[in-house]
Design a protein around this nucleic acid. Sequence first.
DNA 1: CCCTTTTCACCTAGGTGGTAAGAT
DNA 2: ATCTTACCACCTAGGTGAAAAGGG
Lengths: 236, 236
Amino acid sequence: SPGWASEGPGTSGKNRRVCHAAARLEMGSLWEEFNRLGTEMIVTKAGRRMFPTFQVKLSGLDPLADYVLLMDFVPLDDKRYRWGWGDGDGEGGRVPAVLSPPPRRYAFHSSSWLAAGRADPAAPGRVHFHPDSPAKGAQWMRQIVSFDKLKLTNNLLDDNGHIILNSMHRYQPRFHVVFVDPRRDSERFAHQNFKSFSFPETQFMAVTAYQNHRITQLKIASNPFAKGFRDGEPES
Amino acid sequence: SPGWASEGPGTSGKNRRVCHAAARLEMGSLWEEFNRLGTEMIVTKAGRRMFPTFQVKLSGLDPLADYVLLMDFVPLDDKRYRWGWGDGDGEGGRVPAVLSPPPRRYAFHSSSWLAAGRADPAAPGRVHFHPDSPAKGAQWMRQIVSFDKLKLTNNLLDDNGHIILNSMHRYQPRFHVVFVDPRRDSERFAHQNFKSFSFPETQFMAVTAYQNHRITQLKIASNPFAKGFRDGEPES
DNA sequence: CCCTTTTCACCTAGGTGGTAAGAT
DNA sequence: ATCTTACCACCTAGGTGAAAAGGG
């Protein structure tokens, strides 16, 4: 069901401090609107924020326990993509112009995403800790948790702590709630102390420049910082 | 010695996690330059930041222990002041045009601060927690700790959590390092678990509009956000 | 008369996609 | 031919003191 995440490993065997944790994706309808077109996220050398911003509303935490919140990004497949017409000369050979399910149904009278060979070597697998971590469950549940400081880069040598992704590859953002276990030997319970959430509607293609013009237009229409590129203002 | 704070109560009887704590005021020469003229800080209904910003470099903390950092503001005397000439009609009667030591030696051919009666009822005594609190000693000592989110207001009914001060009254900013004691019954050791610092060069008069024109000029010359009011730029 | 409030032009700081040049 | 980079105008967001208006 939209807005609710798959939770990866089952909740059986989880610490009671995380097993009831739940996360609702905020701005779900906007994410879905992008996802229908095939979301693209810009990556730059200096690092670029995501839009929409990944935001969740949490519940089911122990108000008095400490938690760390973090995100990582999982490659959705082992392919590299290119934007263009069907009869490409990509190394991957001919492939259907529309893939299933990701590069959504959008090859009507325009270009679309085509597989173009195997994925490049995986970028260093980094994680982004929410800057308020660690904090009490009560604090996290009080209001929406926003990952608006998270930035994406294509610079393999980045030393700003940004998330490193390969351009022209597809990713699934993943969100983790980690209970800070005060016990000694807590490492031995590490696998019980976290819970992960993946929202399929937040998957995206990393790009250095937008390819699908409809994505560009939706970004301009919905991101306040891009207001300078709007022309007619039919209200909304 | 300038740049080092008086520490209030002695270090005897303090918890070992705070008794070696030390704080060095940053931008000390700028603070002293303001202090020589008689520092004024604007207070507004919405809240105004301090300039210079209160910043310290910490040392002597236990890198692995948790600390909370906070500030409060102590009235420097029980007087209210007015800006003007010596033969005032203030309720306080005639007072020397230059007080000792605060309203520094600055009554040459202009106005100066004069005592004008007893202080107004004290404003609600609030404290400002550094937003990164709590954090490990190692984190606090890693870099300069800046209280740039702290705002001053004269609104007695303020509900934004800002520091409430009486305009035309003098204050001494005070900085506290509090060890977060994990022991049960830690309340009973509360008086041992903190250490306080006062830097005399940071004392100031709260005002709703600048009175001493030299203060205005120094603010304009040194605060980047006031660059719009600079004219000649002789470099610096 | 003295102090406070409101509004404003002018900044800092940083997030947008467009564009043209650069790289492979 | 395709993707990447650097720079730019144009925004959001918010910190300045000046100036004029308001209040006791």
